[in-house]
Design a protein around this nucleic acid. Structure first.
Length: 477
RNA sequence: CGGGGAGUGGCUCAGCCUGGUAGAGCACUUGGUUCGGGACCAAGGGGUCGCAGGUUCAAAUCCUGUCUCCCCGACCA
């Protein structure tokens, strides 16, 4: 007799869609390919935003905002860029009750319109480096969409920088990749491979593209952030120039880098289980739910339980944690346990008359779901310790999973045989035609050529390659 | 655009093969008992069965057309 299949084993994709909707993160909308992000999902986005935004600012980046609509002619100025994005553009042809002389495209990304401004802002090398970021929505008309992972409209951040030299631009490109790597690993507990994209996976208009690649629980890859060295391609198209230290006029060297609401999808697909969402504490909005248990208690006991619950909540909040007290008396405790496991509250504290009598409470980590008795005096310290440990454990678990599904392959036969197994480290140099053929025959795409990054203060340098010369193949989202 | 699947109360679906008074579970309302892992009993409210046409005394059910959504693939973050 076959073992009973868990929801994830029955159909990973169905499990995912179901979870997103049951946890009230997002819904399908009436606009094809667009989703409605519900408050629970948006709270995650706000935390991602807040954390990343601080990291950007720590590197000297400032926020700005540019228009949603881009004159069509702007896109056409950079040849590769139009060619890459043309098929996915939504175009505004009418406005104010009349046909527009020149259509506007809804931004799929903002390199062009931002360069239009940059070319006006920059005169001298003294204006460089110019480091801006915008939090915005963009639209790409994709053939196939998936909640969070690929939607027609999505929220993201796009950073755009200008530099004096190619080396400065390259350094910034890698520095921002490192910011993404740090964010993914330290906050989202999502291990990633930073690396360079192949020629055919490169951003339309870039010199070089780098990305961080994560492995989901179905062994598929997810590109979780990209950083491009744009060279002078857009600078030349938009005449973004400066007078250098040598007195001559030069085109600026540029970078752009982005990450999106896709990260929320990555978070779910990395950590969640059959009971629901699992959110790493450092990115969670609600860390602790306190569930007062007072069903059979006397009124006096009930009052005591409630008072203690709120007092504990206050103490936990003082320690910087997001806390809710679920004192809804119309619902039983079992219902609440399941509910909070579904939405991924990191830590559950049960507090009832029996606990009060002993001066303790019950703590349960969302990922382990095992009860632990904790003295009330130590509750705050213990909660913090458990959350810290949970953060570490989630990362370790995800990394172990990824590493145990990563293989070196030494022949095309081996690559084909292992197509479903995860990340495949191949050691070939590939031309785009071969890459396309491999994709056709196996469904595998190259993800990146990984390397490790080490951040020095203000510097970012390559520090070696864990797998020299290897390129990663896998199925991908 | 190809290949699958689905449209029936707010949600998940049964009923269709073999036409005959529209069903269940969940959710909701009211009352009562419950409450340490998704409580129970009783009484209620709510649907012209995606849309259009056809066959028939009679259509959720059969036929034709059409629309929409989901999953898989091609495109891509």
């Amino acid at each position: 007799m076959a073992e009973k299949l868990t929801p994830r084993e029955k159909g990973f994709s169905e499990w995912y869609v179901d979870l997103v909707q049951k946890a009230k993160l997002a819904d399908y909308s009436d606009v094809k390919g667009c989703m409605v992000i519900r408050p629970n999902g948006y709270a995650l986005w706000e935390n991602i935003q807040r954390t990343m935004d601080k990291m950007f600012k720590d590197t000297g980046v400032k926020n700005a905002y540019f228009p949603l609509l881009i004159p069509e002619s702007f896109l056409k100025k950079e040849a590769e860029h139009v060619e890459g994005f043309n098929p996915q553009l939504a175009v505004v042809t009418h406005a104010g009750g009349a046909k527009l002389e020149e259509p506007y495209v809804i931004r799929p990304t903002s390199e062009t319109i931002i360069n239009r401004s940059f070319s006006k802002w920059i005169q001298s090398y003294r204006d460089l480096p110019l480091l801006v970021n915008q939090w915005a929505n963009v639209m790409r008309w994709e053939m196939r969409t998936r909640l969070f992972l690929r939607t027609t409209e999505f929220l993201w951040q796009e950073g755009h920088t200008c530099h004096e030299t190619e080396a400065d631009a390259e350094e910034r490109t890698l520095q921002m990749l490192e910011v993404y790597r740090t964010f993914a690993e330290d906050y989202m507990a999502m291990p990633v491979l930073p690396g360079r994209k192949s020629e055919s996976e490169k951003f339309a208009g870039a010199l070089r593209t780098y990305s961080i690649e994560a492995m989901m629980q179905d062994k598929k890859a997810l590109q979780a952030g990209t950083s491009h060295n744009l060279g002078q391609n857009f600078a030349k198209a938009f005449d973004t120039t400066f007078q250098g230290r040598d007195g001559k006029v030069h085109h600026v060297w540029q970078t752009s880098w982005g990450s999106s609401t896709r990260l929320i999808g990555g978070l779910i697909l990395t950590h969640s289980d059959d009971a629901g969402l699992v959110v790493p504490p450092r990115i969670a909005a609600t860390h602790v739910v306190i569930i007062p248990i007072a069903g059979k208690a006397t009124d006096a006991e009930k009052t005591q339980v409630m008072e203690k619950s709120h007092a504990l909540a206050a103490d936990l909040r003082k320690a910087g944690l997001g806390v809710v007290v679920d004192d809804d008396e119309t619902k039983g405790p079992g219902f609440k346990y399941n509910e909070h496991e579904l939405i991924g509250t990191c830590l559950r504290i049960e507090l009832g008359p029996k606990d009060l009598a002993k001066g303790s409470c019950v703590m349960v980590r969302r990922d382990l779901r095992q009860k632990e008795f904790v003295s009330l005096d130590e509750a705050v310290a213990k909660a913090q310790a458990m959350l810290d440990q949970m953060q570490k454990d989630l990362f370790q678990k995800a990394r172990d999973f990824r590493d145990s599904h990563t293989f070196e392959v030494n022949s095309y036969e081996e690559l084909k045989a292992r197509a479903e197994d995860g990340f495949l480290l191949a050691h070939w140099d590939l031309d785009p035609k071969t890459e396309a053929r491999i994709k056709e025959e196996t469904g595998l795409t190259t993800r990146c050529r990984p390397f490790s990054l080490k951040q020095e203060p203000g510097k970012c340098v390559l520090t070696g390659n864990p797998s020299p010369g290897r390129i990663v193949f896998s199925k991908a989202y």
